[in-house]
């Protein structure tokens, strides 16, 4: 369905597995939002879709330490302009958890049959493509089970907030998502309560506007 579309690139895959892929951004600090969708061409499938589950900026060489460069006279953006090499010795990475793939024009909410290839370009997902991906809530179970550096309720809250905004404050979608999460965690009352409280805290101000 989307094979002919031009996808804007934000980075490329530098680590890959069936469950998740790590992406190095083309530009320092040009990271996609936590919880947002990204896309990469797959092996044996048209595309693999992932949700940004973690991001960090650090040195390209893990053996090198970041040291202070600024002062009261040189800070923030001016500091980067005065040290042009920083854009080469630092890099921004993010982890995307695979939640679906597309094959023959059909979305399948499973981990991909093969990991996305290393060095393939990764693009942000936008507009109608987000609506298409979020037409069902089944993928939320995969996000709920994902074990990463960020607590899953934080990741879920970030994702729901992102989708809610991208779907132009779609309250119905949000309520169905909350019901789905409640259903998925019904056997673990404490967890269910923790997740729903986090969601309420994160989304409360949005819902009141």
């Amino acid at each position: 369905m989307c094979a002919s579309r031009e996808w804007s690139r934000i980075g490329e895959v530098v680590e890959t597995s069936t469950l998740q892929f790590v992406v190095e951004c083309d530009e320092l600090d040009s990271l996609p939002e936590l919880g947002s969708f990204v896309r990469v061409e797959g092996t044996g499938v048209d595309a693999v879709y992932g949700i940004v589950a973690f991001a960090e900026t650090g040195t390209v060489d893990p053996g090198r330490r970041v040291v202070r460069r600024g002062s009261t006279d040189l800070r923030d953006r001016a500091l980067y302009e005065a040290n042009p090499e920083l854009r080469f010795v630092l890099r921004s990475l993010f982890v995307a958890v695979a939640i679906a793939y597309e094959a023959a024009g059909r979305l399948v909410y499973l981990v991909p049959p093969y990991p996305p290839p290393l060095h393939y370009s990764v693009s942000p997902v936008q507009g109608d493509e987000i609506r298409r991906l979020t037409a069902t809530h089944t993928y939320l179970a995969m996000l709920l089970d994902f074990v990463g550096p960020i607590p899953c309720e934080q990741l879920l809250a970030a994702h729901l907030l992102y989708v809610y905004r991208e779907r132009r404050s779609d309250r119905d979608w949000l309520e169905q998502a909350a019901q789905e999460i409640a259903r998925l965690t019904k056997r673990d009352h404490d967890r269910s309560r923790r997740i729903l409280l986090t969601l309420e805290t994160a989304l409360g101000p949005e819902l009141q506007t």
Partner: peptide, 9 residues
């Protein structure tokens, strides 16, 4: 390392 109006590395 280029410094000045057109900083670049």
């Amino acid at each position: 390392l280029e410094y000045g109006a057109r900083a670049h590395a």
